[in-house]
């Protein structure tokens, strides 16, 4: 480890930054889909959404 790297901590390469950004966007989209899904099913089922017989 050289002096510059020691001062700055771990420095991401461009490839690492790019792939991290891609993964972050994918996670955000997946969470968005989950939220929309729960919202849509709540609207479709109405109060019955709380009735969940085993």
């Amino acid at each position: 480890m050289d002096d510059k790297q020691a001062r700055n901590g771990i420095v991401l390469t461009e490839a690492q930054k790019k792939s991290r950004r891609q993964r972050s966007i994918a996670i955000a989209l997946a969470l968005g889909v989950l939220v929309v899904l729960f919202f849509a099913v709540t609207i479709v089922k109405g109060p019955a959404v709380l009735v969940r017989p085993i």
């Binding site: 991401l12 490839a15 792939s19 891609q22 993964r23």
Partner: peptide, 10 residues
């Protein structure tokens, strides 16, 4: 290690 995995890999 810092992951370089892309969405396509997942």
């Amino acid at each position: 290690r810092i992951s370089e995995a892309e969405v396509a890999d997942f």
